[in-house]
Every structure is written in structure tokens, then in C-alpha cells.
Design a protein around this nucleic acid. Structure first.
Length: 552
RNA sequence: GCACCAGUAGCUCAGCUGGAUAGAGCAACGGACUACGAAUCCGUAGGUCGGGGGUUCGAAUCCCUCCUGGUGCACCA
């Protein structure tokens, strides 16, 4: 907000310069205004002179001097100006500008930081979408948290968000799941059995088999159809998955079942439509989709010679349905192992006449667990992976959420269990939460000591002049823009970094300045400051699904 | 072989999409509580931003190339 105001001032001065014929209008819109990294370089700075000099081979410092003489007339916000380095114009604002930021925090309270950029934009976030063949592993955990945090951020910025889980309950994998279950069932009954070569080896399959024995005894031992086994396994595993998601506070608006695509004839429809556009052909008994027409190296099979579709076909049908359901933005959160499917699906929707630029795929890299400084080996085949449930048992929901959000999706994530289980010191989760709890504690303390809390209008905010206080005010002021950038950039890790930074600033401030002192007016101003901080911590933590404890 | 991602302090990672003297947390070392909560703070030390070219006023950031690691490149999902 303040940034925008400063930008307006600069824009006006540049306009004036252009109309007076000092500068060419080629600069308009080319320069930026930013927050300098280093102290002493002002609250904001602009590279306008450098940009203009670049266009006309002029002298940047001379242009900067002209700009400064125009800006100098703006005395309401600007305290003073400096020309620095190669030709940056550094702008120092009056402290009052920042002190005023407190007002909007208190005006908006729980809504401070929320925005409306996404108003009237209907967006679907598809995430997790794990096959119901086993419990969620830590990789799914990252995806679940990432997807949920993205959804929360988008909600916070006014989007109409719909969370969906694509439930893959058709095809070969389900059959193998049923066969695995039957084999365990027979095994537990002491009967001869043959475990499928690529079967699911996890203990949870035996749990399903045990459940079936309780329900049916040995009545199914000669049953030719695997269906009852598949159905039961799917049911129990799904219950397990949704239970895990529930523990993490993740609620989907819809589970989209793959089999409904077949029931409604939507899969066949895709083939027919592609065929009518001459994008499908038969070869070696299989049906191929001409993905080479969309820049790929080779065509892809969509129906195997056995008559079974490959995974891409229902995927394309599913995405077409998403378009038909009128979303403005389709976000898919996938593990990086699904990278190969992305171009196929995009080619599919494009072939069907939809705008694939509405689809954004967030690919996240893998998670490695670290215990005692060593990597924990995991194998899905042998079912030696660590499940999300086990992780939650060990570190708790807040810590798991926080750690999964700490890295940008593009980076591999190293989850250090030793650090995560530490209840103190270096655990960054508590570092942030402690800042919030500490503020709550000071506010309680003030109440006990009888220091009156006063409404913001009666507070003398000009008493907040310590460098640390101004820094805190600036950080708070940048909170809404940060949320917006994190949301639109689908980057929850930015919120985490912001909160850690703010917590650091607060802890330093706390150690340097006393909030409650003999000086009543100053104490009240500082109480206001930290109450505003409390609001920011609370909102920031909640926006990404973390709790803000009052005490720890 | 091809595609995508990553390579930044001893370790784990940021770096606001091209800005000024590259940052933080751990780890190391030295300090600060008869208390607004020490789950905290202050200080010291630590760098050829993987290598090499290029683009320009200016590059960790953009382009090319090479090296290393991860993930894919099925008539598995």
C-alpha cells in the first residue's frame, strides 16, 4: 500500500519530466521501485535514472539529480532523498508513514493480509490423488501439505477454491491389489496361495485379509472373482488415507472417482473426438494418440492391444471434465515422478479445443528422511516406507506441516527427524510459535500490572521511533503483499520464511527494549505494536494451516 | 541419448523473477537471565553463487556449453 503510494509519486514526477520534455516517454513503465537490501539505502529506491540512461546513453547520475529535484517537492511522505551507487535514487520516508501502518492492522484484524485479487476466479487444486493401494507415504505427505497450503493461500486471496482428489479406482493396479489381498487371505487360512509377482507386500494387506476372515470366514476361499477382495481393500485403505488427511486437517471438496469416467462414457468420447480430428490411429493392435502433432518426440498408446486404456486416456477425459466444470484456473500438484504425464494431458486437452494455459502444474521433488544424520532408506516395493501416520505420531501436525512447507516445491526436501523432534532450541516451528506465545504472555502481563489497553486512535504512535520498531512496522506493512505473491506464485515457503524473519525481528526487539515500563504512554504504544504483531503472526500461521498457541 | 529439477558458507536452504558490499538457520567459538517466558538474544568466524563463455550501465538470476546429483523417457499409474 505504501509502496504503491510511493510509486504513484514517482510516476507523477516522471510524467511531469516527460511533459516538460526533459525525458523521453520510453521510460514510462520500464523502471521499478524496490526495497533496498541494505540499511541506510532508504525505504525504497528506484532505478529510473539507470533505465533511462540505458535507453539514451545518458549520464544516470545527472538524470537522478533531475528526478530528485522533482521528488523533493513531495514533502508529505518523503523525508529526504539520496543518489547512490551508479544512479539509484533512494527514498527515505517520514516515520509517520510507517507508524500509520498500525491503523490498517487494527482496522482489519483477522482479515489483515487477506486480499481480493482472486475474486470471481474459480480455481481447482488437485492434489494427493494417491491410488488407494496403501497408506500415504512421506512423499504424499509433502504433496498433501503443499497442495493444502496453496489452496489456503488462494482462499486467503479471494479465490473460489475447490479441492479435489482424483481417486484412481479402476484398472490394473486395483486388480493386483485384489489378488494380493486374496493371496494373504488364503495364506492366513493356511491354504495354498500364490502371491502376485508385482503384488503389494505391505502388512496392511494382511490387515485387510484378516478383516475379511472376520466377516466371511473361509467362505471366499473358492471364489473365482477377486472383486470382493478389491472392494474391501479399497474401502479400508481409503478409510486409512482419509483418516490420515483428517489428522492433518485436510478436507477435500470432492473425490473424483475414475470409474465414473467410464460409466458416463467420457473415456470413449475422448477417443471418438480425437479420432474425428484425425489425431488417433491403430497400430500393432493398439490405439495411438498423435502426440507428435503437439511437439512430442513420439506418439503415445492410449488403448493397449488388450483393450484396456492406458492411464493417459482417463487422465485426459478427467481434465476435459475439469474444463467443462468451468474453472478459471486448474492447478495440479504432482510428484516429480509424474512429470512424463504432464505433456500428454496438456496435448490431450489442447487437442480437444481447450486452453491449456489455464493449467498450472506444480511438480514437487522428493523427500528424504534423515535420522541420526543418516538417510532413512525407503522402498515402496518392500513396503519399508515411512507413512505419514508414523511421521505424525513422531513429530505432530504443526511440525510436519511446517517442515513440508519450508522448501520450495522445486527443491528436494530433507526432513531432519532429529531436528523436528526437538522440542526446543533450534526447531524453527517453535521459534515462530514462541514469538506469538511470548506476545500473548506480555499482553497478559500488562493486564496483570494494570496497564490500560487503549484503542489505537488514542495511542501516540509517534513514540515508536526505535530502529527495531520501525523495522517491525515495515515488515508488518509488507505482509499483505507477501501473501499475495506467495499465493499467485503458488509458493507457501515464502510465508514460512517471512514468519521466521519476523519472529527473529521480534525476539531481538524483545531482548533490547522493554514493552512495559514506568512510562505509561510509551508502554501503551508498544503494547499496540506487539498486539499488531500478534495479529500478523496469528493470521500468517493460520493462512498456511498452522496453529498460533497462546502459551507453550 | 532426450526432457524436467537442482548445484549459493562445513551442513540445510532463502534470494521478492536483472540491481548496489550475496543472506538466514544449524554446526564452531565467545558472551547475556535474582526474569514483560533463556523454546530467547548479542558478538566472532565462515563465499571463485558447480566450471567456462555470452547478453548490458549491472548477472546467483537471462542465453549457450560442459560437469555433478535427482526424476522421468512403457501397450505401469
Amino acid at each position: 500500500m505504501i509502496r504503491q503510494r510511493v510509486k504513484n509519486i514517482i510516476d507523477a514526477c516522471v510524467e511531469q519530466g516527460i511533459s516538460e520534455g526533459i525525458w523521453s516517454e520510453a521510460v514510462a513503465g520500464k523502471y521499478t521501485i524496490e526495497v533496498p537490501k541494505r540499511e541506510g539505502q532508504g525505504d525504497f529506491s528506484t532505478n529510473m535514472a539507470l533505465v533511462l540512461a540505458g535507453i539514451h546513453k545518458g549520464n544516470p547520475r545527472q538524470i537522478a539529480t533531475q528526478l530528485v529535484s522533482l521528488l523533493e517537492k513531495e514533502t508529505e511522505y518523503i523525508e529526504h532523498l539520496e543518489i547512490a551507487g551508479p544512479g539509484f535514487v533512494n527514498i527515505f520516508l517520514k516515520p509517520m508513514v510507517w507508524q500509520h501502518a498500525l491503523f490498517s492492522v487494527f482496522e482489519q484484524r483477522g482479515k489483515f493480509g487477506l486480499s481480493s485479487v482472486g475474486t470471481n476466479r474459480k480455481v481447482m487444486v488437485e492434489f494427493v490423488s494417491a491410488n488407494p493401494t496403501g497408506p500415504l507415504s512421506v512423499g504424499h505427505g509433502r504433496q498433501a501439505i503443499l497442495g493444502d497450503a496453496i489452496a489456503r493461500l488462494l482462499t486467503a486471496t479471494g479465490h473460489d477454491v475447490f479441492r479435489e482428489y482424483y481417486f484412481n479406482d479402476a484398472g490394473r493396479q486395483m486388480r493386483v491389489l485384489g489378488e494380493s489381498t486374496r493371496a494373504r487371505y488364503l495364506e492366513l487360512l493356511g491354504l495354498p496361495s500364490q502371491f502376485p509377482e508385482d503384488g503389494y507386500q505391505g502388512d496392511y494387506i494382511q490387515d485387510v485379509a484378516r478383516e475379511m476372515i472376520t466377516e466371511h470366514g473361509d467362505a471366499l476361499k473358492d471364489h473365482a472373482d477377486v472383486a470382493p477382495f478389491t472392494v474391501k481393500a479399497k474401502e479400508l485403505i481409503f478409510k486409512n488415507i482419509s483418516g490420515t488427511l483428517g489428522r492433518m486437517g485436510i478436507i477435500f471438496d470432492n473425490y473424483y472417482n475414475e470409474h465414473t469416467l467410464y460409466e458416463k462414457g467420457l473415456v470413449d468420447a475422448v477417443v471418438a473426438d480425437l479420432r474425428s480430428k484425425d489425431l488417433v490411429y491403430e497400430k500393432e493392435g493398439a490405439t495411438w494418440f498423435k502426440t507428435t502433432a503437439f511437439g512430442q518426440e513420439q506418439d503415445r498408446v492410449i488403448i493397449k492391444s488388450t483393450g484396456e486404456p492406458t492411464y493417459r486416456l482417463p487422465d485426459i477425459a478427467y481434465h476435459r471434465e475439469k474444463f467443462r466444470r468451468n474453472f478459471d484456473w486448474l492447478i495440479n500438484v504432482f510428484g516429480s515422478d509424474h512429470i512424463a504425464t504432464v505433456p500428454d494431458v496438456l496435448a490431450g486437452v489442447r487437442a480437444l479445443g481447450y486452453d491449456d494455459s489455464k493449467v498450472t502444474v506444480v511438480l514437487h521433488q522428493f523427500v528424504t528422511l534423515l535420522r541420526d544424520g543418516k538417510q532413512v532408506k525407503m522402498s515402496t516395493r518392500k513396503a519399508t516406507f515411512i507413512t505419514v501416520d508414523e511421521l505424525l505420531d513422531e513429530v505432530g501436525v504443526d511440525v510436519a506441516r511446517f517442515f513440508f512447507m519450508m522448501r520450495k516445491a522445486d527443491s528436494q526436501l530433507e526432513f531432519d527427524l532429529d531436528l523436528a523432534t526437538k522440542e526446543s532450541q533450534e526447531n524453527p516451528v517453535y521459534y515462530v510459535q514462541y514469538a506469538h506465545a511470548r506476545i500473548c504472555s506480555i499482553l497478559r502481563q500488562a493486564e496483570d500490572k494494570g496497564v490500560q489497553k487503549r484503542p489505537i486512535i488514542e495511542i501516540d504512535t509517534t513514540l515508536l521511533v526505535a530502529p527495531e520498531e520501525l523495522q517491525l512496522l515495515k515488515s508488518m506493512n509488507s505482509f499483505p503483499a507477501m501473501i499475495e505473491e506467495a499465493a499467485l506464485g503458488l509458493a507457501p515457503h515464502r510465508v514460512i520464511f517471512f514468519l521466521m524473519e519476523l519472529a527473529g525481528q521480534f525476539h531481538s526487539y524483545y531482548n533490547k527494549h522493554k514493552v512495559i515500563t514506568e512510562n505509561i504512554a510509551l508502554s501503551q504504544s508498544r503494547l499496540c505494536l506487539i498486539e499488531a504483531l500478534q495479529i500478523v503472526f496469528h493470521n500468517g500461521l493460520h493462512i498456511v494451516g498452522l496453529t498460533a498457541p497462546q502459551e507453550m
